[in-house]
Design a protein around this nucleic acid. Sequence first.
DNA 1: GGCCCTCTTTAGGGCCTT
Length: 326
Amino acid sequence: MYFSILQAPRCKIHTLSSAWWDTLQSFGWGSGKGSGVRLLSCNSYGVETGPARRWSRTVTSETEGRNKTSSSKQSSIRQKILDGSVTTSTKFNASKAEIGQAQNIQHWNVQQTIAEKKVLASLVTIIVFDIETTGFSRVNERIIEIALQDLHGGKNSTFQTLVNPGRHVPNHHVHGITTHMVSRPDVPRMEDLIPILLAYVRSRQKPGGNVVFVAHNGRTFDVPFLINEFSRCSIEIPSDWLFVDTLALARELRKSEGSKAPKLSVKGLREHFGIQLIDSAHRAMSNVHSLSLILQRLTFDLRIPVSGLVERSFSASDLINSKKKS
DNA sequence: GGCCCTCTTTAGGGCCTT
């Protein structure tokens, strides 16, 4: 069976990811298990360096708590993180003593917020993923390649495999994946792959925590494809899987940057952030490389902590239910 | 197909994904 967990790229990937995770931890967002790896390895990917300048930021109190009405099981971690946020922007109109007391409370609230976010964010596993398919139709086409990268890094932080769709691959001119390549006996079919994929994700998941999968245009492309493939195999997508769409984050950045706004495609964002392309632009792992770096830059520029990603996430059942309603 | 924007909302076009 052709089934690879890339060795050489994995090393590069996980050092980058660890650096990002370390950065989050320094903001009080990470898990507290720092690897000590710095952004040095960004150079090998052509990303401008200067971590002290680019990645330094003071922690400020935030007012959160939007979208608290979700009642689905899949939103449990989203609820935990959102409920853990504490408002610290209260205006005081009182004596010095009262102000001092209030400031102490405010200071305590900030510390509490940071501590709670640190604990809650430590329960989240962030996995960037991408798929290649036989076409655009979520109903009629099939996945032929899937790649994942756990941004926490470490051993086996990446996962990649071709998938046998059991049909002709008409669009090999797009990604270079031919019918012959996916028809080899060592390439798994989706029904064989899903149990392996589930086991891999479980191996990356923190006890009691959720997984946040990140993809570009995931809401309307990657996630519906996954839902349909799982459905064909009569397997449910785990209830603790959440999804984040970087296209939505890019739209947020476009709003905030005005005339300097980037194009919204992966290529446009890569060019905007000065991220060098690794390998083919239309292979899943190459796109995962790019998207991991794009996610880092988007979350940095938009000042989005892990809880902010969870707040923007959606579940598979969210998509299924919205489709039923429509 | 879904989202966003606008020359809009009783609509239509552009963008994003392979």
